[in-house]
Amino acid sequence: MNETAVKTENLTRKFGDFTAVDRVSIEVNRGEIFGFLGANGAGKTTMIRMLCGLLVPTGGMGHVAGFDIRTESEKIKQNIGYMSQKFSLYNDLTISENIDFYGGIYGLSPAEVKEKKIRILKELNLIRWANSMTADLPPGFKQGLALGTAMLHDPPIVFLDEPTSGVDPASRREFWEVIHQSAAKGITIFVTTHFMDEAEYCNRISIMSAGSIIALDTPRNLKKHHQRDSIQQVFIDLMKEETQSPENRAG
C-alpha cells in the first residue's frame, strides 16, 4: 500500500439542490490520525459514507487505499473498518454473538474469530460479560466493543463517525488510547468528533462548515495561526468568521 491512505479531489455530494459536501480535497497519510470537526449537518457523515462506498459522489474523485471510490468499492471494503454514527451492533445478540457475526461476514475463520474475540474482550475487561446481551452494556463499553468489532479483520484504514458520543470522559480517554495504539501500528484513522479536546489528540484536523473545509492543519499550527490556546477557541473564531462572511469561505 502506498503512503496516501485517503485522497479526494473536489469530492462533492448533492441531495437534490442541497450540497452536503462541497468540493472537498484532502489527503490523509498512512498511519495518521485525521480528525474531522464540524457543527451538526456540516457534512462529516456524508463525507465518510462516500469514502466507504455507501454513497456515490455526485462530483469529484476519491481514492481509499489506492482504490477508486466510484469503481472499486468492493476492493475498498476489504481494506477498511467503519464505525457508523449509530450504534450498529445487535442489541438482541450477546457480545460474543456480535463478534462472531461480524467476523463471519468478513470471512474470518472460526479460529481467527475466537482469538480476536478473546483479545477484544480482554482489552475491554469484558471477558465475564461475553454471553451477556449487548443491550445491557454501558455506553462506554458499547462503543469500545463497536470499535473492536470494526477492526476485527485488521483493516489498514478505519473510519470512525463520532465514536465517542454519549461516552463518559474516562472511557473516552481509554478509547483514544486504543486509537493511538492502532495508529502506532500503521493503521490510518479517520475520525469525526464534536469534542474539541479530542481534536488535540489528532495528528491533523480539518474543520468543516456547510459542506466545505474551512481549515486543515495540525492542531498546533491551527492554534498558532489563530493565536489561541485551544482548538475550542479556534473553532469558535472560525465559526464566527463563517457566519459573518459565508460567501468568502471558498477562498
Partner: peptide
C-alpha cells in the same frame, strides 16, 4: 436501526 450500513461496508 442502522445495522444495514455496517453490513454494507463489509465485503459480503
Amino acid at each position: 436501526t442502522g445495522t444495514l450500513e455496517q453490513i454494507l461496508v463489509s465485503p459480503i
